[in-house]
């Protein structure tokens, strides 16, 4: 995924109502749109929620997906966030096998990626890392040799980049 923008994020403001997510996922299934990830969260206004969708732009037309989404009555606003013009973050949580020999190395890597140890067991560590999604891919690759027991990623959320000059 690194390098060329093969994905694009759509930040979709929707009415906070029952069934809205089903409408969105149903639309994607029916029209054959491919999505990479989807994250839903409340917005600053309790009437609305924000859905962050990451679309595979090589498989799916962003224009069609945007237009079809906007036809849903409960969709209020759609902002296209191109990777170059937006700040993207994702949260990863992982339980990794950590023998006493491995523990030091894992803790160091978590430090390098600005992560945190969130739980410690006799033979495992639970860690969290938030960051650029590509960096999380790297982190995952580096952890794999230790033995990933469980992993959860949130999917990416994004904001447009702030203007640097007034």
């Amino acid at each position: 995924m690194a390098g060329s923008p093969t994905h694009q994020t759509l930040s979709v403001l929707v009415e906070n109502k029952a069934g809205v997510l089903a409408r969105i996922s149903g639309l994607f299934a029916r029209r054959g749109f491919n999505i990479i990830s989807l994250a839903v969260a409340p917005s600053d206004d309790e009437r609305f929620s924000r859905v962050n969708l990451v679309i595979d732009v090589e498989e799916t037309s962003v224009e069609q997906i945007t237009k079809q989404l906007f036809k849903l009555v409960n969709v209020v606003k759609i902002t296209e966030l191109h990777p170059a013009d937006s700040v993207e973050r994702e949260l990863l949580m992982m339980t990794v096998s950590a023998t006493p020999d491995d523990r030091r190395g894992i803790i160091e890597l978590v430090g390098v990626f600005d992560g945190k140890i969130v739980d410690v067991g006799a033979t495992v560590l639970s860690v969290m890392v938030a960051g650029d999604p590509d960096r999380l891919d790297d982190f995952e690759d580096l952890m794999r040799p230790y033995g990933i027991i469980e992993i959860q990623r949130t999917g990416r959320v994004a904001l447009p980049k702030a203007r640097k000059a007034s």
Binding site: G19, R23, V73
Partner: peptide
Amino acid sequence: TVGITRSVTKHNEL
């Protein structure tokens, strides 16, 4: 019903 008819209506509500 709203689930079944979601993709064949412009909109539906329970």
